[in-house]
Design a binder for these strands. Structure first.
Lengths: 146, 146
DNA sequence: GTAGTTGCAAAAAATTTGCCCTCCA
DNA sequence: TGGAGGGCAAATTTTTTGCAACTAC
């Protein structure tokens, strides 16, 4: 399943005339292999352990490239630090206001809900997604004990 | 209606022991009186015309203060620059991927939809909101003509 | 070979902080 | 009048860019 993702990734690269560099592959693999919607800094820190020469600007540059080619998503949050994910299938997010942890969720009933007609006057709607925010179990416990 | 907002604002300040300074009032009024979900920079630029001595850090500081006291919202977006609004009633947003314009929308059917039970295991959900993104009419036209 | 990419360093953009003076409660 | 808040400048944080060297195609 991960391999499928990666071979799709390689194909898309060829189609677009982008070069498949080691760095790009590693950045994508890091995203595809994690569930925590990492920041650029986090990806950088992780990759440095196995690829000590990679630079932070390469991570930023490629997150931007991958995003603009629709290969990764930038998560819609209320934070200023960008968070990314390789999961492109429609889904939604739960965000903890304290620890900023992001959890993927699916919400079938919402997905089946058609937006009101008049939204179409606005223009061309490409994505609809729900952001739920609050305080996660772990942070609730921490609050009580402190 | 704006006056109600502002008097609520003043009351909340008293209750919390926060001081009602000219700057805070102007920042709040700028937000309450605009529909475009401005950034800190935009508010600063606007206020400078009538209050030339206000500083950008005061704007930032107070947006943070107002937000942490629940008097304003930070809009959930996929941008890194923070956008704010004084509209605290539950509503949703349409965001243009090109010009970044944010439009308020209401979506009754969604508001009536209860989140799946199992989301509650996650913790305490405080807000649920929809972000629709795409390309607005104006940007669609610009694309065609270019 | 050569255009697209990288790493380095520096710059830019966005936001926060320390310090001292001011002004609101 | 005491202390929260403002303005200034400097620092941090997050992200972008210019450029020479490098490498995938």
């Amino acid at each position: 399943m991960q391999e499928t993702l990666i071979s799709d990734f390689e194909k898309t690269f060829q189609q677009r005339g982008l070069r498949l560099t080691q760095q790009r592959l590693e950045i994508f693999k890091a995203l595809a292999g994690s569930k925590d919607h990492p920041t650029a800094e986090k990806i950088y820190a992780q990759l440095r352990t196995t690829m000590p020469t990679i630079s932070l600007d390469t991570v930023y540059r490629n997150l931007h490239t991958l995003h603009s080619h629709g290969l990764i998503n930038r998560v819609v949050t209320g934070q200023s630090q960008a968070r990314f994910e390789a999961n492109l299938s429609p889904h939604h997010h739960l965000i903890c206001k304290i620890c900023q942890k992001i959890t993927d969720i699916s919400w079938q009933d919402f997905d089946n809900l058609a937006p009101p007609q008049d939204f179409n006057q606005w223009g061309d709607i490409k994505e609809k997604q729900v952001t739920l925010s609050g305080i996660c179990k772990t942070c609730l416990k921490d609050k009580k004990s402190s």
